[in-house]
Every structure is written in structure tokens, then in C-alpha cells.
Write a protein that binds this DNA or RNA. Structure first.
Lengths: 239, 239
DNA sequence: CGACAAGTTGATGTTACTCAAAAGTGGTGG
DNA sequence: CCACCACTTTTGAGTAACATCAACTTGTCG
């Protein structure tokens, strides 16, 4: 059993995160809770959606960590983004849409059907829209990180982004948050090798900027970290 | 005056591209042409939208090349995607949206207001949705390219993507298409230096795979190029 | 034709990768 | 409770890919 920074469990984080994107009425929160009462389970390391698979129905991740990824035939992998509690999967404007990336699990994961945007109410529809917009912003940030940042900067930027996103779900306090992934997964996220991730991490630890043990990460000096990579929060304005 | 592969000028490419994403009724095409009759002009190297600027109204790029980009305070730049004829700018699901990247021009550019999705008709609304979905797919591809491909592979993958996208607007034939950018811009796109882009380009030329002179690029052996980078077209199914 | 931007080349430096092995960690069954 | 196993993290040594710096050449446009 992990010692989480906040005693947020189950679907609370997902609801908190959507609620932080747009105010939800009581009936909207209730609709979420009802959908969450019949969750789908996926074990660690499973594929939720394959690349090219048609998107059956919109879903919300309730618990655990997923990721979007692309796999090359020679074994190279690139993780394109993380799917955290409250994040959406399988949303598309057109009905015949196809997933442009695979989606897999990094931990055990609980999903549920997302209440249909059309019937969900204004608050939920807005929360969905904001969530998808934020996802796109993080994707732009990810591309900029991969293209123009050093390994050191990529790591710092990544930790800051995780802190920001998990905080919006109530899963981070005082710069401390769960980070239940291996260094190899982080390497596949940041376009590095796990050996180099390890060495860069040691630098950050030596400098007293970041701790990360047993699946729990801690930013010792968030402000200094932000300055180092010109970090501007995506969610600043909507909080 | 450039010798374009096809005599497509003005707004025709933009309409062709949207029409390839979803069939347009005559009145929808007419609405596009009408909007295009009062275009906005931007000169080369200008900023169309600043990062963080609120999105006033949806627009369509009619002619020329734009790009989304992020600029770092020390001068580093990362181009996050190209905006080509028929591509959309400033679309957002929520009204108070903000641009998460800057958008600038790489050539002289003509824009027009996009007929409002709600009133535009089903065909246009579907074309918009498909266009935004394709943009996202290309962004995922871009991230994977930056994270896990060698300089050589990034170049090949990039040329293939440009050919695919321009072909959907009728701006590429037989692997030949306009590429009105400098090697430095390409470097900022692929996360490389212009020196290294130049050297890699020479390899590709020596191998007889790619030509690129005077703003016109030509793929000599598209099939071989596709195999080298496992290129799967984004638009294959919707054509 | 002249000026400035873009492309090209060479020499050298650095970041990050590769390969290989050792040490640590956590979970499982006997 | 311990032994074992697989996985993860850490360390070292050598290498490759790409960056940097600087100059020179070519192309373009007024």
C-alpha cells in the first residue's frame, strides 16, 4: 500500500480534476459517480486501445496511470503522453474516428464510460472541452521538450508537468506526488536511454532539487526548477 | 514566380483539401469561396497569433505556409507543426480559449474567416472535425519523430508527411511538391542544427532518394522511403 | 553589380548512446 | 522466514551522433 500525499482514493481524484476544469453541478457530479460505479479494470502493462482501433465510446480514467504510445518494429518506443485520473480517452468529434496512438496501462487502471457530452450538462461538457484542450497543450509542450531541450531540462520539465497535472486532481501536495513508473518508461517518454535518465536523475538528486524513491517523487525547490526551464503552467488561468 | 507541380492557385487548394476530408455540398463550397473573397494578408516572418493570445475567431489558411512554434528566451526555437492550405487556425470548443502556441508565417499567407461550424452545414462541420483530428495525428507523429528517430529518419519522415499533406490539397503530384522553407526552419522543426540538416540532406541526395532545390522538393522513391521509417499515412482511410 | 541571406565545408567538442556487468529491490513459493 | 527469481537501478568504459565554431561559397533580390 502506497503512502499517498493526500488520502484521495477511487474516483475522487478524477471528479476533482474535472471539477477543477469547470464547475460541476450536483447532478453532473452524481452522473460521474454513477458511471464510476461500474468500472472497467485493466492490469499493468495491458493495451487499452490499439493504434488504428476505432473509438467505441468515450471513457474517463478513474484510477491508475495510462499512456499513449507508439511502438516501432525494431523495439523502439515513444510515449506520447500520460493518462491520469480524470483524463479522457476515446473522445472524437466524428463517429467513425480511429485512435491515432495506442493506449496502454502503466499501473492497474480503472476506467468508466464518460457521461455523454450532449446529455451531460453544461458543466461537464465544458470540463471535457477544457480537458481536451489541456491535453493538446501538454502535447505541444512534449514536442518542444523532445525537440529542443537537453536531457537535464527534459527531466525537470517533466517533473514539473506531472506535479501540475496531479495537483489538479488533488494527488499532489507540497511538491510531492506519486510517480509509479520505471526509469525505462521515463526514458521512453523523454526520448532518452534509461542509463542516461539514471545519470541525469543522480545529478538532480545531488543538487537537492528532486527526490524520487519507491514511486513517490518530491520537488524540493519548485520555483527554481520552473525558472530553469521557463515553465509556464497550462492550467494557471483555469484554476 | 514558382513553377508549381499543379496549376492550383488561390483558394482552390484549401477547398480541395477540406473537400477531401468530407464531401462538401455546393452551398458549402460556395460559403467557403465567399469567405475567401475577403482574405487577410500576412507577410513572411510575421506572427499571426501569439502564445497565450485569446482565440478571436476560427480561420482557414488559404495560401502560403504558416507554422506553430515555441520560442525559448535564449533563442532556441521549436516548430511544432506546419499550417498548410486548408488547415484551420483558432478553433476551440470553448469560447474563452487561449492559443497554446504561437503561430507565424513562413511565406506570405492568406487567411479567411472559417464559416461557423454550427451554420456551415454537415459536410463542412465534418471536414473541420477531420482536419482537427488529422492535425492531432500529425502532432503525435511529430513527437514520436523527435523522441525516437535519428536525424536521417526524421528527415525522411518529414518529407513523406509533407508530400501526404500537400497531396490532399492537390499541391503535390508524383512525389513533387513546393517546400518553401530554409534548412534552418527545417532544423527548428526536426530538433537539429541547420548544419546537420545540410549534411543529412546531402546523404539523401547522394543516395538518390530526395531532391530539393529552389523551393521544390521531389521524392524519387517514395515506397522505399516509406519502408525506411515505417510510414503509415494519416489520411489513407479518409481518401 | 553589390549586399545579405542561405547553403556548404572542415575541424573540433560534447552530449547522449551502447555494451556489459554488478548491486539493489520486491514478490513468490517452499 | 528464507531462498530464489525477475526486474530495476546503478556503475564503468568506450563510441557514435550530433552540436559548435568559423570560414568560405553560392544564390537571390533590389
Amino acid at each position: 500500500m502506497r503512502a499517498l500525499p493526500l488520502p484521495v482514493t477511487g474516483t475522487e481524484a478524477a471528479v476533482a480534476r474535472l471539477g477543477s476544469l469547470a464547475p460541476l453541478r450536483a447532478d453532473e457530479a452524481a452522473a460521474l459517480m454513477k458511471a464510476a460505479s461500474t468500472p472497467l479494470k485493466f492490469a499493468t502493462g495491458r493495451e487499452i486501445i490499439a493504434e488504428g482501433q476505432s473509438l467505441a465510446e468515450p471513457r474517463i480514467l478513474l484510477e491508475g496511470w495510462g499512456c499513449r504510445l507508439r511502438i516501432f518494429s525494431d523495439g523502439r518506443r515513444q510515449i506520447l503522453g500520460f493518462v491520469l485520473p480524470g483524463d479522457l480517452i476515446g473522445f472524437a468529434r466524428s463517429r467513425d474516428a480511429i485512435s491515432s496512438t495506442a493506449i496502454g496501462t502503466l499501473t492497474n487502471v480503472l476506467l468508466c464510460r464518460a457521461p455523454e457530452p450532449e446529455q451531460a450538462g453544461e458543466g461537464l461538457a465544458l470540463a471535457y472541452a477544457h480537458s481536451l484542450a489541456a491535453e493538446k497543450s501538454y502535447l505541444y509542450r512534449h514536442a518542444a521538450r523532445l525537440g529542443r531541450m537537453s536531457a537535464y531540462e527534459r527531466m525537470v520539465d517533466f517533473f514539473l508537468e506531472m506535479e501540475e497535472r496531479l495537483a489538479s486532481a488533488g494527488l499532489a501536495t507540497a511538491g510531492t506526488f506519486p510517480l509509479p513508473i520505471t526509469q525505462e518508461v521515463l526514458a521512453d517518454t523523454l526520448g532518452l536511454t534509461s542509463v542516461h535518465v539514471n545519470r541525469t536523475l543522480q545529478t538532480l538528486r545531488r543538487e537537492g532539487l528532486i527526490e524520487w524513491h519507491g514511486g513517490i517523487a518530491r520537488l524540493r525547490d519548485p520555483e527554481q526548477l520552473r525558472q530553469r526551464v521557463e515553465y509556464r503552467p497550462v492550467l494557471a488561468h483555469s484554476r
